[in-house]
Design a protein around this nucleic acid. Structure first.
Lengths: 199, 199
DNA sequence: AAGATATTGAACCGATTGGTTCAATATAAT
DNA sequence: ATTATATTGAACCAATCGGTTCAATATCTT
């Protein structure tokens, strides 16, 4: 069974022997939603085996522990899965902010919200390295939000506005795990943007 | 060792025999911060024994399972621990909103934020009854927030403003588990209230 | 076919999980 | 002292946890 998108692409040299059937990236992308939905502690190796289709032996040949696998999921999400690149689109401004927030529930992903926001609740249980990465992600996020705010004209200082947006985004993502109705989410975003326009 | 505030008070009749050394409420109040900090899955019975000072046998004589203990913690928190009664103070208005948000980190509790908000991340693992109670709590919360908003004069409709406040509160509580500096929290609340005044 | 590599399944490990049972003991009223 | 109740600690239980090891097999190159 071939469940790897392109495992050969990750092989540094063409060697003889049985070719790899899965690659690191595939495992990460299949393990991530499991961590996302269940949280770190409630995600057993059994669940990870089922989700990735890779045996426990295989998982441990690729990752040295469950901790490392989780950390690498975070790293991969930050590098590829998050929607923060939306905030770099030109021109900077409110539209980017709105698109970014909407991406939390309008993407193709089955999971709603933001993996890093959800991971905050696991900070007591996950590796320090994962916490550090998420923390850095948050400050980076506020920085790029700030740039978009500064591109608009506001009566209030841009910095507190950027902070408000980040906090709203946090709460908004949390509620997406709770109330997943798209119409509700649409209304919240629309109202929030109205607030931003008036600041 | 007497670690019960008033166990006798809960006894319906004065019976002979050894008096109770602990009471239900004491256990709930000591177990709650453990659940709060670690989440449901990572809170083992061993941790609960240590925190409550009550043997596993004693815990199971009082609660039929870990699920029930958790559910009762939620119930007790909603009835006694939350700060939502602040929102009923007269006169209704912005001051209540501000006091309520501030209570999330200015109380005497060691835990910052809101237990029910934190519990959202455990929805995949906790009993349905607990989820239902928390869900009802949220709609109740928004209703009473709305009353306070309606007591003020705003250009925007009161309902979206109330919703914004609840979402902000969610995100704010999440960040309290992440950044616990009081000065930071003070600034966030101050800025948010400025936003509310302008709506 | 031979050699090299990838992957699996199963067996195993010690520790811990939530949960049960019960004898022993402590503390009260009678 | 007797009786009734509360509480403990320890011994269990089956199941699961994260983690390791390895023989067997599958799939490639040569």
């Amino acid at each position: 069974m071939i469940n790897c998108s392109d495992p050969v692409a990750e092989r540094t040299i063409v060697s003889r022997g049985r070719p790899k059937n899965f690659c690191r990236t595939d495992i990460l992308e299949k393990a991530l939603p499991v961590f996302w939905q269940n949280g770190f502690a409630s995600t057993s190796l059994q669940l990870l085996e089922q989700a990735t289709g890779v045996n426990k032996s295989g998982l441990y040949s690729e990752f040295e522990s469950k901790d490392v696998l989780y950390t690498e999921c975070i790293r991969h999400y930050l590098a590829n899965g998050s929607s923060s690149e939306i905030l770099n689109r030109q021109p900077l401004g409110w539209q980017n902010i709105e698109d970014f927030i909407r991406a939390a529930y309008c993407g193709e992903s089955a999971q709603k919200g933001c993996f890093t926001v959800s991971s905050v609740r696991d900070f007591a249980n996950i590796p320090d390295e994962a916490c550090d990465m998420v923390g850095k992600c948050f400050s980076d996020l506020e920085a790029v939000i700030l740039q978009n705010v500064q591109a608009e004209t506001t009566r209030m200082d841009a910095r507190p506005v950027a902070e408000l947006i980040r906090i709203f985004f946090f709460g908004f993502c949390m509620e997406l795990g709770w109330n997943t109705k798209k119409a509700t989410a649409d209304r919240k975003v629309k109202n929030f943007m109205q607030v931003l326009y008036s600041l």
